[in-house]
């Protein structure tokens, strides 16, 4: 139960976001492991009511979300900004076939980034997602997260859109090197 200590120290918005997704009937959490999503990933692993699905590459999650929708369910993809680049052709499935799509992207390569390798994809996330028809919403502060995620869920699963919520590097915290 050592993880409880970790959860207490963590920003509460991650727990609130997980609870919001569960209330909105998301039962599949797909991800490539990432520090920015670690609390949500851990909660999905401990939650008997959901499938927690580790992916080898992010585009697998795009296809999984579509397959889940075909069955009448809801899946969410959690990924880092670098993973967005792996998804691009697979998003033609979402755009061309009008699947609802919701993803949360933990941003790197922006505010305060010290690793030069993160900038190319981090800075390309918004233009590349928009080019594939994905609406981008940004959350910069802890109090933004739940209202932004609520709006995104409505846009995706009532509005029938594909939506990415970009969790800003300023929100997540800058990794030290």
């Amino acid at each position: 139960m050592g993880l409880i200590v970790e959860t207490k120290q963590a920003p509460r918005w991650q727990d609130e976001l997980y609870d919001l997704l569960r209330k909105a009937n998301f039962t599949q959490f797909a991800y490539v492991p990432d520090a920015g999503h670690s609390i949500m990933i851990d909660r999905s692993l401990k939650d008997p009511g959901v499938h927690s699905i580790g992916l080898t590459s992010e585009e697998e999650g795009v296809a999984l979300v579509a397959g889940t929708d075909l069955g009448g369910g809801r899946a969410v993809l959690l990924m880092q900004s670098s993973g967005v680049g792996n998804c691009i052709n697979m998003l033609s499935l979402i755009k061309g076939c009008h699947f609802p799509f919701l993803t949360f992207v933990s941003m790197r390569g922006e505010f305060g980034e010290g690793n030069p390798w993160q900038y190319a994809m981090g800075q390309a996330v918004e233009p590349v997602l928009k080019a594939m028809g994905v609406i981008c919403l940004r959350a910069e502060r802890p109090e933004d997260v739940v209202p932004t995620a609520s709006a995104a869920i409505t846009m995706a699963y009532q509005g029938g859109q594909s939506v990415a919520v970009l969790l800003a590097q300023r929100l997540i915290g800058v990794k030290k090197f």
Binding site: T27, Q28, H51, I53, E59, E60, G61, V62, A63, L64, V65, A66, G67, T68, D69, L70, G71, G72, G73, A75, N89, M90, S92, L93, G96
Partner: peptide, 21 residues
């Protein structure tokens, strides 16, 4: 459900569907 593109999607779509139903 037949895919006309999105090469590489078939197995993961099947997984999402299988877990949902």
């Amino acid at each position: 459900y037949g895919l006309g593109g999105a090469m590489g999607a078939a197995c993961m779509m099947g997984l999402g569907l299988a877990l949902t139903r």
